[in-house]
């Protein structure tokens, strides 16, 4: 019984890692295309989406079966819950990689504009966050997860700065309105990707430390606790 359960948990983890590597590959291609302007790299990204979606459904089914058949508790239950959440966040990351690739294609002729803003730095950071979030889950590495969570603020800052810079650009050079609009959407996608990476890391912390740390900074800022409503 216990062996069977362990086997199911192991299979689930393997599938999540396979899915994560597909998403990681999508992100890698999208960000390299952004950096190098090599739009050829964007080609395979959309095709991977189907495979990612198959894993998404498979993992959800596996989680449902384990919950129904084994009724896990404590650390095992937290593992299943975090896998369900991470599964969802990875699938979103895959979608965002597709979106980024689309915007890269649309703004390819304006590579100098990209270079002028901090989009590449922001992209690098978000890319690193996703990679580290996945690694932290594979290796149960809480320190790495915390590093991901800490990085989110700086990506948000980049997002605001780039937005301002692009608005200014549009005001001064009206012929650049269209590419600038695409780039605003692009930075928004990058910011969302970083958010999902942060959520993945938060779910690892939930699994390992049994603590829900999502929204912690906001709660601190507002001086409230998540224990307020019980």
């Amino acid at each position: 019984m216990q062996d069977n359960f362990n086997q199911q948990i192991e299979n689930l983890k393997i599938n999540l890692i396979k899915m994560a590597s597909l998403v990681d590959e999508q992100a890698e291609k999208a960000f390299t295309a952004l950096e190098t302007g090599n739009v050829e790299l964007c080609r395979g990204i959309k095709a991977k989406e189907l495979e990612v979606n198959i894993y998404d459904n498979l993992i959800q089914t596996q989680c449902e079966n384990i919950l129904a058949l084994f009724q896990p508790v404590a650390v095992d239950l937290r593992f299943i819950i975090s896998v369900m959440m991470i599964n969802n966040q990875l699938e979103r990351c895959g979608d965002i990689a597709v979106n980024i690739a689309q915007r890269v294609k649309k703004t390819n002729e304006h590579h100098s504009l990209i270079a002028e803003t901090q989009i590449l730095e922001m992209g690098k950071q978000a890319r690193e966050m996703l990679k580290n979030a996945i690694d932290s889950f594979i290796n149960n590495n809480i320190d790495l997860a915390n590093k991901v969570i800490d990085s989110d603020e700086s990506v948000d800052k980049f997002n605001k700065q780039i937005f301002k810079a692009l608005v200014l650009k549009m005001q001064n050079e009206t012929q650049l309105i269209e590419p600038c609009a695409h780039l605003i959407v692009l930075t928004r996608h990058i910011e969302r990707l970083a958010d999902h990476a942060t959520n993945i890391a938060e779910n690892l912390v939930f699994y390992v430390n049994a603590r829900i740390i999502a929204h912690k900074k906001k709660f601190e800022k507002w001086g409230v606790s998540d224990q307020t409503i019980d």
Binding site: F5, A74, A210
Partner: peptide, 17 residues
Amino acid sequence: IFTNPSKKLTEDYISGK
């Protein structure tokens, strides 16, 4: 006890280990 037991021994028992 069933979500986050403080002792490893409890966790092992309730999760069937």
